[in-house]
Amino acid sequence: MSHTAHIPSHRKPRLSASKLAVRAGVAGGVLSTLAMAGTASASPSAEPVTDKTLEMPVLELDLAAEVSSAVTTAAENTRAAAVEGELNAQEESARTGAAAEAKQAKADAQQLANAEKKAKEEADRKAETERASRDADRTSLTSTSASGSTAGSASGSGSTAGKGSTPAKNSGKGSGATAPTTGSASAIVNFARAQVGKAYVLGGTGPYSFDCSGLVRAAFKQANISLPRLSQDQSMAGTPVSLSALQTGDILYWGAKGNAYHVAIYVGGGKFVGAQNSNTGIVERSLDYDRPTGAVRVL
C-alpha cells in the first residue's frame, strides 16, 4: 500500500453529460427571463405604442391664374403710375406756362402804364409850354399895347393942338375895325387854312410866319377888313357871340374880353385855325383841344 493512499484527492469529480445538459437548460431559461425583464423595464410606458400617420393639408392652388392676376395687377399699377406721372408733368407744365403768361401780362401792363404815363407827361409838357408861350405873348402884347396907347395919345394931342379939330369918328364896328359889305367868310377861312404848317414867330405878320393876332389880321385883310394888330383889341372888334352859335369867320379869343392873350379864326365843323406857339406853329384843331373863352363876329 502506498503511503499516499490515505490522503484524499482535491480534484472535483467530472459531471456526466446529462447533468451538463440540465445545467445548460437552466442557464438558458434564466438568461431568457432576464432578457425579457430588461426589455420590459426599458419601455417608457406600459401602454402599447400605436403608430400614427400625420396627414398634411392639401393646398388646391391654380398657379396659372395666380400668376396671370399678379401680372395684370403689376401692369395696372405701372400704367397708373405712368398716367399719374404724365398728369403731374402736365400740371407742372401748366403751372409754369401760367406763371410765364402772368409774368408777361404783368410786364405788358407795366409797359403800357409806362407808355401812358410818358404820353401824359409829354402832353402836360406841351400844354405847359403852350401856356408859357401864351403868357410870354400876352406879356409882350400888353407891353406893346401900353406903348402904342401912349404914342397914340401923344399923337392925338398933337393933332388937336395943331389943327384944333375933333378926333375922327369911327366908321366901323368895334375898336378901330371896318366891316365893308364886301367881306367874305370863305376868303378868310381859305387863307387861314392855307397857312397851316407855317412857323409861329412872336410879332410875325406873314407871309412866312405869324403870331396869333398877326394871322387873324392877315386873314381878314383877304376880305378887305382891317383889324387892330393886337389880340386885346381884336377881342373887342365886332359883336360878341355865344360859343354855341358860332359861324364861319368868327374870331375866337382866350382870356378876358379886351384883355385877351390869344386869338384864332373859327373855320366851321367845331374847329379853329390859329398860330398856337413856337412848338406847334400854325395848326387846325378842335375846339375841345383848347376851349376858347369867347367869340366876336365882325362880318
Rank of each mutant, 00 (worst) to 15 (best):
A192H: 05
A192C: 10
A192G: 08
A192L: 09
A192W: 02
R193G: 05
R193K: 15
A194I: 12
A194C: 13
A194Y: 13
A194W: 13
A194M: 12
Q195W: 09
Q195D: 08
Q195A: 10
Q195C: 10
Q195H: 13
V196H: 01
V196L: 03
V196N: 00
V196C: 06
G197I: 14
G197M: 10
K198W: 13
K198R: 14
K198M: 12
K198F: 10
K198S: 07
K198C: 08
A199N: 07
A199H: 01
A199F: 00
A199W: 06
A199Q: 05
A199E: 00
Y200E: 00
Y200F: 12
Y200I: 02
V201E: 12
V201F: 10
V201N: 09
V201W: 07
V201I: 15
V201A: 11
L202D: 02
L202S: 09
L202Y: 07
L202C: 11
L202V: 07
G203P: 10
G203V: 03
G203K: 00
G204T: 09
G204C: 10
G204L: 07
G204Y: 08
G204S: 11
G204A: 12
T205Y: 08
T205S: 11
T205V: 12
T205F: 09
G206P: 09
G206R: 02
G206A: 02
P207D: 14
P207Y: 13
P207F: 14
P207A: 15
Y208C: 02
Y208S: 15
Y208P: 10
Y208W: 13
Y208V: 13
S209L: 00
S209I: 01
S209N: 11
S209D: 00
F210N: 03
F210W: 07
F210A: 05
F210C: 04
F210M: 06
F210Y: 11
D211W: 03
D211Y: 02
D211N: 01
D211K: 01
C212L: 03
C212K: 00
C212G: 05
C212Y: 02
S213N: 04
S213K: 00
S213G: 09
S213Y: 04
S213W: 07
S213I: 01
S213V: 04
G214P: 10
G214D: 05
G214W: 03
G214E: 08
G214A: 09
G214V: 05
G214F: 06
L215W: 01
L215V: 09
L215Y: 04
L215P: 02
L215N: 03
V216M: 06
V216Q: 05
V216A: 02
V216I: 08
V216N: 01
V216Y: 06
V216F: 03
R217E: 11
R217A: 10
R217H: 13
R217Q: 15
A218K: 03
A218Q: 09
A218Y: 08
A219Y: 06
A219L: 08
A219T: 10
A219K: 00
F220G: 04
F220Y: 14
F220C: 01
F220D: 05
F220H: 02
F220L: 07
K221V: 13
K221T: 14
K221E: 14
K221H: 15
K221N: 15
K221R: 15
K221M: 14
